[in-house]
Write a protein that binds this DNA or RNA. Structure first.
Length: 300
DNA sequence: TTGATCCTTCTCCCTCTATT
DNA sequence: AATAGAGGGAGAAGGATCAA
């Protein structure tokens, strides 16, 4: 039953695009007087409903709305198609729905201006590499520029510093103006949309990195993060690769006694309270209650 | 110089699926 | 349609290292 109902919903939701696909098939093979069956003697009788679920909704005045009538017609037409044709429509409806979702997410994701903070070297390369690049390999040009960069005069260095300061200040100013033109809640929603886009468009090379905004509420730190942070800042792991240190810290963490562990769990609980409070203050709504998911399923 | 990666555990939060 | 659980990806911390 579900297999039949799903395409029906999709076909109905997909609206105009499906109507376009379904209509020619139906129009060519079926007469407009589908609701009547011709008897042997030539008279017609009202035909029974094609299938359950095709009743046309009526508006308050008891009249069939244009949209409802269209939808009902589309549903009826859909059922008269072969399974292959139905599958094609369903597939098209799915693709259309996915495309529409991507479009909505992209709109939500916002388009912040790039805040490029360049260095003296970056500016120097930008200013000089183009003229030299003709014909010579880039690596050679970069080597030449690096040599020249080392030997710049004080005056040239000062000029370069000035250029860097101006360019970076301008970039930052434009970015901040754009950022503060949006509320933290909008930036949060944009980052959520970006997360979904990263997942959906992973194979297309689209990055959609999160927008950095100091106003956003920092996520609550779990007991592990707090323990890890404390151990790392102790200095015991100076010079040790983060990966190797993390392994060692994990061993320490798992070896903690119940009372030792509780200390970090309490700190984590406090941070969760901080997260909830800031969420309310900054975004103007309560933090979603994810503890609900740990409750047992309702009895059937 | 920047950004990504490494590597761990835990939590958040989204998507998908199942159920009512 | 609404709701809830399962599953899974991301991000939270740290600094060294590598590629571009």
């Amino acid at each position: 039953m579900l297999a039949l109902r799903l395409p029906l919903r999709l076909a109905a939701r997909a609206g105009p695009s499906n109507a376009r696909l379904a209509t020619p098939v139906v129009a060519s093979s079926l007469s407009a007087s589908r609701s009547y069956r011709t008897k042997a003697d030539g008279s017609t009788t009202p035909r029974k409903k094609e299938a359950a679920g095709t009743t046309v909704p009526k508006n308050k005045a008891g009249l069939i709305s244009k949209t409802a009538a269209k939808e009902a017609a589309a549903k009826k037409a859909y059922k008269l198609l072969s399974p292959e044709e139905q599958a094609a429509i369903s597939e098209q409806a799915k693709e259309a729905k996915a495309k529409e979702q991507i479009k909505l997410l992209k709109a939500k994701a916002l388009s912040p201006p790039k805040n490029r903070q360049l260095t003296n070297w970056a500016i120097y390369v930008r200013e000089n590499a183009k003229d030299r690049a003709q014909g010579s390999p880039v690596t050679t040009v970069i080597k030449q520029l690096a040599e020249e960069f080392k030997n710049l005069s004080t005056r040239e260095k000062e000029h370069l510093n000035h250029q860097v300061n101006e360019a970076n200040a301008k970039s930052l100013r434009e970015y901040e103006e754009w950022l503060h033109g949006h509320t933290p809640a909008e930036i949060l929603a944009a980052n959520n949309a970006r997360l979904q886009l990263r997942n959906k468009l992973a194979d297309t090379g689209n990055k959609y990195m999160p927008i950095k905004d100091d106003r956003l509420v920092k996520r609550a730190r779990g007991s592990w993060i707090i323990f890890h942070s404390e151990r790392f800042s102790s200095g015991d792991f100076r010079g040790i690769k983060a990966g190797d240190a993390a392994k060692d810290i994990a061993v320490e963490f798992n070896a903690l006694s119940a009372s030792e562990r509780k200390k970090y769990e309490d700190l984590a609980a406090k941070d969760l309270e901080r997260y909830a409070r800031e969420y309310r203050e900054i975004y103007g709504v309560e933090k979603p209650d994810w503890s609900k998911k740990t409750k047992s399923a309702p009895s059937t």
